[in-house]
Design a protein around this nucleic acid. Structure first.
Lengths: 232, 232
DNA sequence: TTTAATTGTGTCTTAGGGACACTAAAAAAG
DNA sequence: CTTTTTTAGTGTCCCTAAGACACAATTAAA
């Protein structure tokens, strides 16, 4: 029953790390796609990612960050594991496993770099069906979107789609773009106060009407989770 | 141990699948541990798991289920991915990635099989420090416990630690063992009704006082999530 | 000066968990 | 046989935070 361990008895699956990097652009949820330079699915658009480099990476988190930095020139403010996907069918080269992260970044942080290259672009998640996407990445993006929507209902996570200084109006727009539903401004204000994550800065900013108070994240605070969801 | 050069080993990290299988035993959260038959950490206790067998497994889910069935002789009722853990330090053989699942099973379903073997056992999660655990598995078990506790606050997931027919009193004990806090019986009854996941069966059962109504899960229903957490 | 737009406040409603009293029914104690 | 103990189940009030929405404040545009 117990044969001695030998690593060569097993064929290792193909293991990659991919990231779903989201941002809000034009009041819509966008995902970063990369034009594939290699087979399989050459010239198709897919998620940024690749193989672990065990000489450079101290963990798969580092792999995800390294690949994202290669494509966007910045590290995302928020990164967490989504899930891994595996099977014989998802990659023509054979049984494969991809560990998928999902990440958030404010659009301004990467816009200048993205505009200088033509193999990296933002695409609206709701327009994904107009492209032919590599592997099962279209499905993975949908899963990541669902997870982000859930998190937006019970946490302050969407703040990582905002620049360092922001107004409540901007925050509300980001949340609404993610959950695809309007929320009460009052509810957001109550949550901002209850979370104690933010501080006002001595500045107001034009917004088309009355000047808006500017907020920023208090240094060193963790993301706050709430006990109730926003209603769906 | 000297492994011959293998191109796959060089490109790919060591990839394994492990599972944190929980049950409730004696009103306490228990985890299934397996005595390791091989290096590294031979004779230490660790999580059930191993390498993907790409000839047998259609996905990593199947790997987890196959390994659990080897050790317990049953498939768990509940299985989901927890997270993956990676790094150079966690396995002396080099950079490794383990994809960890967490699973729930009623104790009765596996007790007879467990008692016949001596390399598999249940151990109370709160007594883990009395054993020396392989790899970073002690840490992983703590992470899985935290995740299970969170899920118990907003979902009916703990029901998978119960046998097919159960009383509200048993359900309450399972939840309380998981979250390590008492809950209001009334709250559980309200959630059972609101979820519409259960039906009463025409049977009552002794419980030390008044006879208790027996419930079971309606066939084909999905686990229900609530919009509010139980208070912590 | 008026109107429109956006920010910010006040407050009532609503849903669901927390608490707890009270009744029901069965077993154990006397 | 009666009383006590134990667990099951119900009724109901409280509390908190989200939803709804009116209304005041402030700015720009018409």
């Amino acid at each position: 029953m117990t044969t001695p361990y030998n690593i060569n008895d097993y064929q290792n699956p193909l293991f990659t790390v991919d990231s779903v990097l989201f941002t809000i652009k034009n009041n819509a949820l966008n995902v970063l796609l990369v034009k594939r330079a290699n087979q399989p699915f050459i010239d198709h658009w897919g998620l940024p990612g690749g193989f672990v480099d065990i000489n450079k990476d101290t963990s798969t988190d580092q792999t995800a960050l390294r690949k994202l930095k290669e494509k966007t020139n910045v590290s995302p403010l928020y990164l967490e594991q989504l899930e891994s996907y595996s099977g014989h069918e998802r990659d023509p080269r054979g049984f494969s496993v991809t560990l998928v992260y999902f990440a958030l970044v404010p659009e301004q942080a990467v816009s200048t770099h993205i505009e200088t290259v033509d193999d990296v672009k933002w695409i609206e998640v709701n327009s994904l069906n107009t492209l032919s996407i590599a592997f099962d990445h279209a499905y993975i993006i949908q899963q990541a979107k669902t997870r982000l929507q859930q998190k937006a209902l019970y946490s302050m996570t969407p703040v990582y789609c905002l620049p360092p200084c922001f107004t409540i109006g901007q925050f509300k727009q980001v949340i609404e773009a993610i959950i695809e539903k309007t929320i009460q401004r009052k509810t957001l204000i109550r949550r901002i106060e209850a979370s104690d994550m933010f501080e006002t800065i001595d500045k107001k900013v034009k917004s088309g009407g009355r000047l808006a108070q500017v907020y920023k994240i208090k240094p060193g605070v963790d993301i706050v989770n709430f006990e109730r969801n926003l209603s769906i």
